[in-house]
């Protein structure tokens, strides 16, 4: 090993242990103070942050499915156990911490391995890979729709989103919950017009969905904007007629943000597709007392 040298080739002076210790102490002190400050802020805000998030989520679920006050929503948490090659589903009434949990375990081959009802407050499984949650909504005894939680890798960080499906599994809407795409570029995927492109497509059409960089036709853009700003009631007629033309066409990417557009589209496709296969297994089981109560 050669001697350490300065960038201009001059030999580097021997470090004085006292100076080194001083610098180390200084950095340790700064880091410790920072850690205390950050830790304090985290402890002070964490509870409110979780509450705010939960409230936002509840509003999103009932808003996307246009649920009334009497609706019952079952939250299903999904965990993958790679070692045992099985998927665990934990279903309970949404937002009610004291509700009992019903557990269903399926092998990856689709066989039912376990079904049990656990009392309220049972420990959450640990060491398992968490898959997205899903929400099953019932209103007046009939299935009102689903909201699926999905995740996709965006341009910078993960994009977390909800996909709402009606009882025939056609898309009712897509909502981006969290993302860190660039404002003005990738962040445009969270705008109502871009998201509205998914709405109305059947699971088969979603499975075949692509993304194009072609500019969005003006009339379709206008119709999507009208749809996005229509509140409740009937969807605009323009939108419905143009949807027939566009439903088999690809998603029109946000100009200059193809990666983000692809990421969300890929995520929605994957989430809907997985759900379609799981629902075939889950549906008959959730009809039991655990979900309908």
């Amino acid at each position: 090993m050669s001697e350490l040298v300065q960038i201009d080739g001059a030999p580097r002076p021997k470090a004085d242990p006292k100076v080194v210790a001083g610098i180390a102490m200084n950095l340790v002190l700064v880091c410790a103070v920072s850690a205390i400050v950050l830790g304090g802020v985290y402890v002070g805000t964490e509870r409110y942050q979780r509450e705010a998030r939960l409230a936002g989520e509840r509003a999103a679920v009932s808003g996307m499915l246009a649920l009334g006050a009497d609706a019952q929503v079952t939250e299903v948490r999904q965990y993958l156990d790679p070692a045992k090659r099985e998927v665990r589903y934990l279903a309970k009434q949404y937002g009610d911490e004291s509700a009992p949990t019903r557990t269903l375990v399926f092998g990856l081959d689709g066989s039912l391995r376990e079904a049990e009802a656990a009392p309220a407050g049972a420990a959450e499984p640990t060491g398992l890979e968490e898959l997205g949650r899903l929400f099953v909504a019932k209103q007046g005894g009939a299935l009102a729709g689903f909201v699926l939680e999905g995740e996709s890798r965006g341009y910078k960080n993960r994009i977390r989103f909800f996909v709402a499906l009606d009882s025939s599994l056609a898309v009712l809407g897509v909502r981006v919950l969290e993302h860190e795409e660039d404002p003005g570029l990738g962040a445009e995927i969270a705008t109502p017009v871009f998201r509205a492109q998914f709405t109305g497509r059947t699971p088969d059409e979603i499975a075949a969905l692509g993304v194009t960089r072609d500019p969005m036709p003006e009339d379709w853009h206008a119709a999507l904007a009208a749809y996005a700003s229509s509140t409740g009631g009937e969807a605009p007629a323009d939108w419905r007629s143009l949807l027939e033309r566009e439903r088999t066409k690809p998603i029109y990417a946000v100009t200059g943000a193809t990666i983000s557009s692809r990421a969300l589209t890929r995520g929605v496709k994957g989430t809907v597709d997985h759900f379609r296969r799981r629902w075939a297994l889950l549906a008959p089981r959730l009809e039991g007392e655990g979900a309908s109560r």
């Binding site: 920072s34 400050v37 802020v41 942050q49 998030r53």
Partner: peptide, 16 residues
């Protein structure tokens, strides 16, 4: 970084 993180957390908690 500390200021940015603290502001980020505080805003997320109190003005979602």
């Amino acid at each position: 970084a500390v200021w940015v993180s603290a502001i980020d957390m505080a805003l997320a908690a109190f003005v979602p």
